[in-house]
Amino acid sequence: MKETIMNKNIQALLACNKEILNHKATEYSPLALAYIGDGVYEIFVRTYVINKGNAPVNKMHKASRELVRAETQAKIYHSIEKQLTEEETNVLRRGRNAKSISVPKNADMTQYRHATGLEALIGYLYIKGEIERINELINLGLMGLSNEV
């Protein structure tokens, strides 16, 4: 019950921005999509963590930090890639192949590129207003992580 309410709250929060996003998602570079996708992913992760129950903020921060690491995002990338449409796969690939100026400090380059691909996909879907699809893919990825443990 609480999770459903939280998911509806996220969708309402993100959907209110749909009116001000007046560009087509295809007009953005993969790194611009990853930039906005990083923020959207963070909201989902923090909501997921707080949904687990009230805890000291430090513990919630540590749990969130683990889920936003490039290594974890790369695992999510691999767990959802077979569930994507052709269009989504193309965006994921464009994000993964984008040449970033920054170098990751806590991940290898392959993990970092996969994480960028995931963030680009989330950004793309966000700009298109497909919040439900973002929710579906992130939940699928998080289930894949919990099955790993």
Results as ranks from 00 to 15, higher is better:
L13N: 04
I131Q: 09
K24C: 13
I127V: 08
I10L: 14
L21N: 13
I127M: 01
I134C: 03
I36E: 13
Q83I: 01
V45G: 00
L31P: 04
K82W: 08
N58S: 15
N147A: 08
N51Y: 04
N58P: 07
K128P: 01
S64P: 07
Q83L: 02
N58F: 12
M1I: 05
L67D: 07
G53K: 06
K62M: 11
N9I: 07
K8Q: 15
K52R: 09
L142N: 05
K8N: 15
I50Q: 15
I131N: 10
T47E: 11
L142D: 03
F44G: 00
I76A: 04
A55P: 01
H78W: 05
M6S: 12
L21A: 14
Y126E: 02
K128R: 06
R113M: 03
Y48C: 00
D108N: 12
I10T: 08
A98R: 00
H23R: 12
N139H: 02
N7D: 15
A98D: 03
G37V: 02
N51D: 07
E130W: 03
E42P: 03
E42F: 14
E87T: 04
D38T: 15
N147I: 06
E86R: 13
S146Y: 10
I43M: 11
K99V: 15
S146H: 10
P104G: 06
T47P: 01
S79F: 07
T47G: 07
K18F: 12
G37P: 06
G141L: 02
K62W: 09
S29L: 12
V45T: 06
R133T: 04
Y28S: 04
Q111L: 02
L118D: 08
H78V: 01
R113P: 01
D38R: 10
G129F: 05
E136W: 11
A12M: 08
G144D: 00
V57I: 15
I5V: 14
K99N: 15
S102N: 13
R65Q: 14
A12T: 12
K24P: 09
I76Q: 04
K75S: 07
A107Y: 05
M6P: 04
T89W: 14
N54P: 11
K52V: 01
